[in-house]
Design a protein around this nucleic acid. Structure first.
Length: 431
RNA sequence: GGGGAGAUACCAAAGUGGCCAACUGGGGCAGACUGUAAAUCUGUUGGCAUACGCCUUCGGAGGUUCGAAUCCUUCUCUCCCCA
């Protein structure tokens, strides 16, 4: 039974561009469709979530999702974004990354060998078999330079204000990506490619190639780039990407990312990143508007996404940690938390160790945080923070670098909780 | 191959011999206000120092000078125009 995939994406605000007749084809038959991902790391980050969600909806609608790992294209670098030169990945790393990514994708997609089971493919597998001659003869021949030059991503680079110019390698990128589409069209009868709106040019080169070379018909859907209302980059924090792998970004930090989303963005994101129905979402938005300070939207968003990526247990832990860290916890309450709970709360928080002997005589805050440990990069930074009233230890404000810390300050006779500002915690273990 | 422009801190961008640790904007961090939101306001944003001040930094290397981000030589890289 096929559901209307396009309609589903439409109300969720996930369609930026769509080729004519795409909707009709998708309603008529079950087709295969793909999204490409660069395997630059062995984990996906939340920038990839939109693609995964598109594939998820695609599969739920009764179609077959293909996840293309760009082993070959990842070596080139797409000029559509302002990507830097990529490093060559060796084959072993590539395979490792592919496996890890597939593993993460399996939380979103069904890999069950049914007719519309998801499949992971790697363009390295076919691109590596092409010789340069094969490529320019079999692929290059079908597309004119004029056509390639007319793409926005190319035009911008050549005639835009920046006029950066581009290398031949980057210029060829759209042909390489087009070749992927062509390959998948041939081997999986893949008729749809999805991606971010910046991919439109590259995708249409693929559909063009399929038409000219095989006389086939293929389609395209792009989704808007996810933005933040304040203009910042989505999914980036000062510390870098938010990863799906809990070893890179702890479930607590992951959960917090979503909790911190602004009201405006939350309304958009809940449609894109959760599977809640339109009715459910409308109800939550309504609820949020009547009592905005209760943050229904952020809470539900964080709950849904964290469960999908990390599971119920991790969600519960992240919630508990959030309560402890953001509730009106006092020094006394902190001291009462038993050790295992305490440690699980701070899993994923930066940690430092220090010898207990250093503490026996007492140690000044300045020496402790900027010399014995690197909680602060420099004493100057520490001083500024303290002067601005932004530093607490064990939930108690510090107002001088000279303040002494001794073993009696240790929680559980072992830990110090350093807090910079409202949201940044560091744990010092002393033994 | 010929001609031109340029490289300054996280980014953008001023500065073109001493007043430059370097204007300004963005971003970051912190504070106030709040709802772990947004907006706004304040402080801060190379290192050391409570502070006077000291040390390292303006693409790389060398030089001129009492003194260089600023002048000279050379190298590297980027962009533009012509062939």
């Amino acid at each position: 039974m096929i559901k209307n995939f396009v309609e589903e994406l439409r109300w969720r605000g996930m369609i930026h561009d769509i080729m004519p007749e795409t909707e009709e084809i998708l309603m008529k038959e079950s087709v295969a469709g793909y999204v490409g991902i660069d395997p630059t790391a062995d984990s996906l980050h939340i920038g990839h979530l939109v693609s995964l969600m598109m594939l998820r909806h695609f599969q739920e609608a009764g179609h077959k999702p293909l996840l293309l790992i760009g082993g070959a294209t990842g070596m080139i670098g797409d000029p559509s974004g302002k990507s830097e030169e990529r490093n060559l990945l060796d084959l072993e790393t590539l395979r490792h990354n592919q496996e890890s990514i597939k593993n993460q994708a399996s939380r979103f997609l069904r890999f069950d060998n049914s007719a519309n089971s998801a499949v992971v493919v790697n363009n390295y597998d076919w691109m590596s078999r092409f010789s340069f001659l094969d490529f320019i003869r079999d692929i290059g021949k079908h597309i004119t330079v004029n056509y390639m030059m007319s793409k926005d991503s190319v035009k911008k680079r050549i005639t835009g204000d920046a006029r950066e110019g581009m290398s031949f390698t980057e210029f060829s990128y759209q042909l390489v990506q087009g070749t992927d589409y062509l390959e998948l069209y041939k081997s999986y009868n893949c008729k749809l490619q999805m991606g971010g709106s910046d991919q439109w040019g590259n995708i249409t080169t693929g559909t063009e190639l399929i038409r000219r070379k095989l006389g086939g018909e293929a389609f395209a859907i792009t989704c808007p780039l996810i933005t933040k209302s304040d203009g910042g980059k989505f999914g980036k924090t000062e510390k870098g990407n938010i990863w799906l792998d809990k070893n890179y970004t702890s479930p607590y930090q992951f959960y917090q990312f979503w909790i911190n989303v602004s009201d405006e963005d939350a309304e958009k994101y809940i449609k894109i990143f959760t599977l809640l129905t339109k009715q459910e979402i409308d109800a939550i938005v309504e609820q949020h508007r009547t009592q905005p300070h209760l943050r229904f939207l952020q809470n539900r968003l964080a709950e849904e996404v964290t469960t999908m990526v990390h599971g119920e247990e991790e969600l519960a832990a992240a919630r508990k940690a959030s309560q402890i860290l953001f509730g009106n916890t006092t020094h006394d309450m902190l001291a009462e938390i038993d050790e295992s709970t305490f440690l699980s709360v701070f899993e994923g928080v930066p940690q430092f160790n220090i010898e207990k002997s250093e503490m026996n005589a007492g140690i000044s805050v300045g020496a402790l945080l900027a010399e014995k440990t690197k909680v602060f990069e420099s004493k100057g930074e520490l001083r500024r923070t303290v002067q601005g009233g932004g530093l607490s230890i064990n939930k108690e404000k510090i107002d001088s670098l000279e303040q002494m810390v001794t073993v009696t300050n240790l929680l559980n006779n072992k830990y110090l909780l350093v807090q910079k500002g409202k949201k940044n915690y560091t744990l010092i273990t002393c033994q």
